[in-house]
Amino acid sequence: MSVILTAVATLGAIGAGSAGILYLVSQKFKVVEDPRIQEVQDALPAANCGGCGFPGCAAFAAACVSADSLEELSCPVGGQETMDRVAAILGQTASKTTKKIAVVRCSGSCEERPRQNLYDGASKCSIAAALYGGDTGCSFGCLGLGDCVDSCTFDAIHINPVTMLPEVVEDTCTACGACVKACPKDIIELRKQGPKSRRIYVSCVNKDKGGVARKACNVACIGCSKCQQVCPFDAITMENNLAYIIDDKCRLCRKCAPVCPTNSILELNFPPRKETPPAAKEKEVPITA
């Protein structure tokens, strides 16, 4: 009996002693976390995609709480709504963000851009890009091995098996920018989603001279600058034989797309045109070298 009693007493004493020490230590080294961090974190989408530039939602929440203003901070996944909620918790105002979307600037499908050789190395764009310009005559275009697809947390970009080009799913893309970083060819860009998802962009990144680009791909921008001349809002720049439409300046007037001799300019989600302007249909393509 006494054995049991001694055991209980000693163990009890050790237990109580340890509890006391633990209590004191925990008091002394207590980390006071701002309760708002948890609150902000709860308001975030918990995608942990890194699109905000922080390693995960928790880090972004902490950054929001410690920041003086929310101007530079935005969660691409949650968008305006989420940032407004965060702002409400912190008693600040969120800056207005425009919804963006990833855009693949290459239309060189298997048909438009004939393959000239066969790549049979490791199936990764970044590895292929380090080895050579790609299996077509265009050394700027998409390699089609899907580094962008692998990088997407939201399953929003897929390779179309017919064209072998990646396609972005409008509703799922959160514009986190992971694919933009993953693409070794700098083909993907985040652009304004536009009203009713309508947007216009030059779907080409080829900087070769017109003749060379055209020879490699039927839908390459040949740098003729026709689109630039026709644009009433000065939204198109020409650099290194390549046109680029600045989305902040573009007012979606649709004047440029029909004049492009190679159909490099894509218009998405617009209603069909009433009459097809003759320029777009012309078969003879003038080439400026």
């Binding site: 190395g121 490791a122 990764k124 970044s126 590895i127 380090a130």
Partner: peptide, 12 residues
């Protein structure tokens, strides 16, 4: 396994 292909990428 394409060991060197990956290692070359990692190295760069």
């Amino acid at each position: 396994r394409p060991l060197l292909d990956y290692i070359r990428l990692g190295k760069s």
